[in-house]
Design a protein around this nucleic acid. Structure first.
Lengths: 232, 232, 232, 232
DNA sequence: AATGAATGAGTATTCATTCAT
DNA sequence: AATGAATGAATACTCATTCAT
C-alpha cells in the first residue's frame, strides 16, 4: 500500500501529462483505419492502455475526441513548404516533381494522410471541423501551389493560366492518391493497385507539360458537337 | 364497395411496378445525405411512402439496396460514354472539354454524384461494396478515358504518354469536384466555393495542354535539391 | 379465356376439396421437420402449391393449422391394436416383442412419429391440444398395454405387478426412440446413433424379463445407505 | 456523499460476483418456462434485476447463456454420481432404486429438469447446442449407468445383457418422467398425473427384475403371428 | 485522476396476418 | 375461392456514455 509512493506518484504524474497524447495517437490510428463510426471508444482506450472511463475524462464525447485528433495532426507543418520553395535553386519545372515526391515521402505515405480522406468522409458531419480544415490546410496549400506556379510564370517558364483553379491540376492527383490509398486501395488486389512512384512521376510530368510555354498547335478551339455523359 | 375496381387494380399494379424505382430514389437521397451506415432502412421506406417490410420485399438487405442504387445511377449508364466517343467527329482536344462538361451536366451536378464520394467514405467498412464498385464503375471509366487518350495519340494530336496512369489527369479533377461538392463544399461560403464551369474549363485546358504535342523547351530535367513536406 | 371452362371448373372444384388435405400434409411434413416456431406459413403454402393467402383462408391462424394437423394425424388407428392383441395366439412373452416391432414398422419409423415428439415440445403452448392428445392417444395406449400385461398375468406367464405404472416399462423405450429420432438423432453421427432393431429387441427382452415369473433370488430388499444424485 | 463508501464498495463487489449466478438463475426459470426461442434476452435481464446490456456483458450470446445454464445445472454435477456409485456398499439391486430416487430428489423434481425436456424440443433448431448436450450430458450418463449394470454383472447379481442398449431400460423411465412433467403434465388433472415416488419405485423394481439372474421359464421364444400397429 | 460495471437507446431483418383485387 | 403485395410488431445485440467506488 504505502510502498514506493514517490515512484508511483512520479509515474502517475508523468503518465497523467502524457495521457491526452497517448489517447490522441491511439485515436488517430483507429480513426484512420476504421473511420469515425467504425472506431469504438473502448478500443481507443485499450490501445492507449487506459480504461474506457479515462478516455471520457479527457474527451467528453467521441466527437470531441475526433476534433482533437484532427486539430492535433493538421496544423503547424504548412510553413515549411513555403520556405523550401523559396530556397529551391532549380527551375519550377524541376521543382514540381520534387515537391510532389517529397510530399509523398513526408506525408502521403504516412498514416497522417488518412486524415485527408477522413476529412472528406466526415466533413458534413463535422462542419465546424471542415471549416477549420479548410482554413488550416486547404487554403495554405492552395497558396503554396499558387506561389509555385506564379514562380514559373514569373521566371518565364510557364504560360499564364487561371492561377486560382490551375492549382487543382497539381493538388487533385495528390489528394486522390491518399484518398484511394485509404479507401478502395484496401479492397483491391495486385495489379489493380496504384504504384505511387510511377503515379506521381506521371502526374508531375503531365502537370508540368500543361504549364510550360510552347508553340501552340492550332486545333483545339471549337466546342464540337453533341456528346453524352460519362459517369464516374 | 365494387366501385372502380379497375382503377384500383391499375393503381395497385402501377404502384407495384413503380415500387423499386420509388425505393431506389428514396435510398439515393438518403445515402447521399447521410451515408450508408447513417441511413436507416425504415427511413428509406418512409420516404418512399411504404412500410419497412415492403422495402425488404424488394431488396433483401441494405447492402443489396445500395448496390441497386449504384447500378441504377452509375453502372447502367457507362456504356453511353463509349458510344458517344466513337461518334464524335472533332479533334480529341475538342472532345475532352466537351466530355467533361457533359459528364458534369448529366452526372456530376446531380444527386447521384454523391455516390462517388460515398464509396470513398465507406469502402473500408464495406469491402464487398468496394469491389463491386471497382468492377462496375472504376474499371469501365478507366477504359473509357484510355480510349479517348489513345484516340488522340492515334490521330497524331497527342504525344505518347503512360496511358494507364495518364487517365488520372482527366479523372482526378472530376472525382475531386464531386467529392468536394459533397463534403467540404457544404461547409464553406461564397467565394470559397468552386465554380464548376470555370473549374472544368480550366482542368480541360490543362489536361489537353499536357497531352498535346509541341516543341519542348529544354529546362525540366535535373531532380534539384532538398525540399520539405507539404501537408494536404 | 373462355376455353375449357368445364374442365377448369372441375379441376378447381377437385382442387378446392383437396386443399385442406394438401395443406395439412405439407404442414405435417414441416412441423415434424422444423417444429412449430421453425415452420414458416409461407413454406407450408408453397409446399402445398398454393399462395400464402389461401392457407389463411382455410386455417385462420398458424396455431389452428397446427391443431388441425395433430387432430388429423392422431385419431382412428388405436382400435386396431386391441383387435390384434385379442387375436394373437402365442404367449404374451412372444406378443410383446412382436408388438413393439410392429409399432416401429407402422408408426415409429414413419413421419407420423414426429407428432409424438412435437406434442412433447408444444404441449405447454397448446394445453387444449395436449388434453386431446392425452385422451385420444395416451390413455388408449395405456389401456392397450395394460391389457397385454393383464393377459400375461391371467395366463400365469407374468408375475403380478402395479399394472398402472408397469405400462411405462413398455412405453417409455418406444417414446424415447421416436423422440430421440426427431431431436438429438439429427445432430449426432455414426456410432452415436441408435439402431432401432437392436434397441427394440433389447428393450422387449428386458421388459419381458421384468414381468416373467421366476424363482426370486433373495438379495434385493434393503434400501441401502446414502448416495448422491445423478443428473440426466 | 462520502458516507459508507466501504459498504457501497462491498455491495458493488458482491453484486458483481453474484451477477452471473443471478442471470443464470433467471435464465433457467425462463428457458424452462418458455423454451429457448420463446425466452427474450431482455426478460432474463429484467428478472435478474439488471439491464439488457449487463446480460450481454456476462454472456456474449443467448446460446452461450443457454450453454452456461446447462453447465451450471447439469454437466457440472455428473461427476458426483460416479463417486457415489463407487462408495455404495450394498447390492446393485439395492443401488438402482436408491440411485433413481436420489436422482429425482436432486434433479428430476427441480426446475433444472426442465432443461432435459428443453433440449429434446430445441435440438433440431440448435444443432450446436444439441452436440454440446450430447457430449456434456448424455454420454456421461450412459457411462454411469453402464458402470452400474456392469457392477451387477461383475458381482454375479445380474445376467449378461447388451450393455450398450440395456442402459435405456434405466434411463428412459427417468427421462420420460421429467419430459412428461414439463409437457403433458401441465395439461392434465388429478388422477391423470404421475406420482413420481410410485412411478420410480415401480420402474426400479421392473428394471432390477429384468436384470437379475433367475431360473428361466421356457415359453418366450417363437416370433408368433401377425399384429397391427399401435400409435403412441 | 482512474476504473470498469452498468446502462439503454438504437436498428436490420423476419414473418404471421390482412385485404384489395 | 385465390392471390400476393403490404404491413408492422417483435427481438438480439452494440456501444457511447455515466457514475459509484
Amino acid at each position: 500500500m504505502n510502498s514506493a509512493p514517490v515512484t508511483d506518484a512520479v509515474t502517475r504524474q508523468r503518465r497523467k501529462e502524457a495521457r491526452p497524447g497517448e489517447l490522441l495517437a491511439a485515436a488517430l490510428d483507429l480513426f484512420v483505419e476504421k473511420g469515425f463510426a467504425g472506431t469504438r471508444s473502448e478500443e481507443v482506450a485499450q490501445r492507449a492502455g487506459v480504461s474506457k472511463g479515462t478516455l471520457f475524462l479527457y474527451f467528453p464525447t467521441k466527437e470531441e475526441l475526433f476534433k482533437a485528433v484532427v486539430r492535433e495532426n493538421i496544423s503547424g507543418r504548412i510553413g515549411e513548404g513555403f520556405e523550401e520553395v523559396e530556397k529551391f535553386p532549380g527551375s519550377t519545372a524541376q521543382l514540381i516533381p520534387v515537391l510532389m515526391q517529397r510530399w509523398w515521402d513526408s506525408f502521403g505515405s504516412t498514416k497522417a494522410s488518412g486524415l485527408t480522406k477522413l476529412m472528406m468522409s466526415e466533413a458534413t458531419n463535422f462542419p465546424e471541423l471542415a471549416s477549420f480544415y479548410f482554413t488550416e490546410v486547404i487554403e495554405p496549400n492552395h497558396r503554396l501551389i499558387r506561389a509555385v506556379i506564379q514562380r514559373g510564370i514569373d521566371r518565364g517558364e510557364f504560360r499564364p493560366v487561371d492561377l486560382e483553379y490551375a492549382v487543382y491540376s497539381v493538388l487533385t492527383p495528390m489528394i486522390y492518391l491518399v484518398t484511394w490509398k485509404h479507401s478502395m486501395g484496401c479492397c483491391v488486389t495486385g495489379d489493380q493497385q496504384i504504384d505511387p512512384e510511377r503515379y506521381l512521376a506521371v502526374q508531375a510530368d503531365m502537370v508540368v507539360h500543361s504549364l510550360l510555354k510552347h508553340a501552340e498547335p492550332a486545333q483545339h478551339t471549337a466546342p464540337g458537337p453533341k456528346l453524352q455523359h460519362t459517369v464516374i
